[in-house]
Amino acid sequence: MNLPGAFSSIAAGIGTTATLTISSFVFGAIIAIPVALARVSRLPLLRLIGGTYIQITRGVPPIVWLFVIYFGLSQFKIHFSSVNASIVGLSVISAGYIAEIYRAGLNSVPSGQQEAAQALSLSRISSFTNVTAPQALVAVIPLAIAYFIGLLKDSAVASVIGAQDITAMALAASKRSMDGLLIFILAGAVYLIISVPVAAFGRWAGAKIAARWAVRA
């Protein structure tokens, strides 16, 4: 198989990989908000629930999550398409990881900030939205971008339950052409190439935000 042919067959999966990664990241980032808030709550029960969610989502391998959702739930006549099942599974998982990123961000804000907000009689909500959250964001952005790249690679497992992503396209092409070496090197290169601009964006955004808010003097 020639290089352009191999590339075009793999490239057909880029859209699905992008859909999987971006959707799972966005949903995960949203679900992660209540999880992180529970994790740092003053109420022990909420802390336990948040912590358990994080442990379980990270304790079970991504591919097993997808199998439970895709094959397991079909026992209850709940049928997802392979892409939807993958988005559900990867969102559940990424929420656990992103919740920990949020928590790291919150922990990076010195406790004196909280005290100053209290001493100025700011309400808890105002102290969070106006003082803590903007500063936490500075720590969150680079971690979140790094996780996004991790999720991009994790999304390859969706191919095992039939999502037609980069890896699935590469596998199909390698079986057709019997040229697995070239095709899988190329597939790996595509993942690498996609992650390069994302990482660059992450560094740029991180620097931009840090400069704008000048948090670290």
């Binding site: 690679k153 994790d154 999304s155 390859a156 497992v157 191919s159 095992v160 890896t167 590469a170 596998l171 390698s174 040229d179 697995g180 070496l181 070239l182 095709i183 899988f184 090197i185 597939a187 790996g188 993942y191 690498l192 992650s195």
Partner: peptide
């Protein structure tokens, strides 16, 4: 290191299993 971290582990498995026989 960069390839090992930048490429999905699943693709590495396929590369070893389906790609290496050609060599």
């Amino acid at each position: 290191v960069e390839v090992g971290r930048g490429v999905p582990a699943l693709v590495l498995l396929y590369l070893v299993y389906f790609g290496l026989p050609q060599t």
